[in-house]
Nucleic acid binder design. Sequence first.
DNA 1: TTGCGGCCCGACCGATCGGTCGGGTATCGT
DNA 2: ACGATACCCGACCGATCGGTCGGGCCGCAA
Lengths: 224, 224
Amino acid sequence: MAVPPPSPAASLAPPSSRDKILDVAEVLFARRGFEGVGMREVADAAGLGKSSLFHHFRSKAQLYLAVLERLLAQIDERLRPALAGTMPPAERLDRWTDALIDALAAREPAARLLLRGLFEDDAFDAEAWPEGQGAERHIQSILQGILDLLREGAAAGVFRGASGPHTVQTLIGATVYHFASGEFGEGLLGGALLSADAVRRRKAEIKTFLHQGLVVAAATPRGE
Amino acid sequence: MAVPPPSPAASLAPPSSRDKILDVAEVLFARRGFEGVGMREVADAAGLGKSSLFHHFRSKAQLYLAVLERLLAQIDERLRPALAGTMPPAERLDRWTDALIDALAAREPAARLLLRGLFEDDAFDAEAWPEGQGAERHIQSILQGILDLLREGAAAGVFRGASGPHTVQTLIGATVYHFASGEFGEGLLGGALLSADAVRRRKAEIKTFLHQGLVVAAATPRGE
DNA sequence: TTGCGGCCCGACCGATCGGTCGGGTATCGT
DNA sequence: ACGATACCCGACCGATCGGTCGGGCCGCAA
């Protein structure tokens, strides 16, 4: 918050200390959760003294929320264009799913951080943490987008009448959970989760499921 | 471990201290994770002194693993009968899904605990924790059961040729994640996750998705 | 040259962490 | 009556926790 210049040459300069802290904290929080990571550890990983962290972030909780908000902002940014356009809803849903998976696979800690953030909401989402409202806003924006798309598809008759929220839950489970499943998922799949190959496979599996389970096939108007 | 008598009158007597500890620890670990819960807190909730916990469990990690193993054993026990029998694979899959959801909904901390356990495996599954192999065994048993069923159904031509592991991941995401999603899921669904009504709805949603997305419909042999 | 603010640090604080220790009590078999 | 054992406790230990404090270094404005 309150970055003096909006970082005009963002991709050229070496990352600022603040960004470096966010980067290492993201990895650590994803790996061991909010309670499992100490500020000392973050500082060491960032190559700073512990006191310096408190110059950039007022508290550990605020650092955590900043990490979460940055990630959610990036995901929201990636997802929004997939929803726009005049393509039929089924095609936009495909693009949205691809974009979500790409966003989750782009940085390794992403999925795990999101899922952990879900669990720790009890401790943060109270009004006692106004800093967390930025993250909350991005979540609402993402949900609003996909819910609107599902509703539009259902109204047009190209999606089955499945409950929107339930479909979203299934979608999250099939994507976020999958890429957060770590060693368990790798053991089950028999290989890395984030390799280009594995990501492509996952996209295909999910979209097949979606086409059969949600989209009303044009050739078979059979409806239960 | 090493319970003197195997608790012959299990359902009559008030819960032993050991079980009481497991009960409260399950709730606390589910709510705030391994690192977020202190032994002091567990002891207070169980109505014991902190030292007494170490009489029943050698360390905090062992208590955590005992909680996890007890839960996994119960789930495995519930799931196994659903796989047995001579019914067609599609019907057994339905029963398995129902049993899994019932098991997750039976106790509120179950789903969250499982998902958290997944994340914390890095810290435990090393051979440095032989106490955790009991939990690992149950996981393997559960996975083996559902994977065999999926393979059998695919071989018989009644399931589409979706990857077994990927289908399992989708199944876990659609069930475990859903019931672990806490306040987020309740906000999205607009009500409690664990009410009898919500559980029934979730079962129906998932099975519909499964029937359309996985099972080859008898009336529409259309296979794209 | 003199300030001043951004950035960083080592030293320190009270609190809490997991875990140990010695001892107390109640119940058992002998 | 006598250990032995199970169970429980308060007091305590060293380590680490999040966070504060005072000050040092550097680049810029006056």
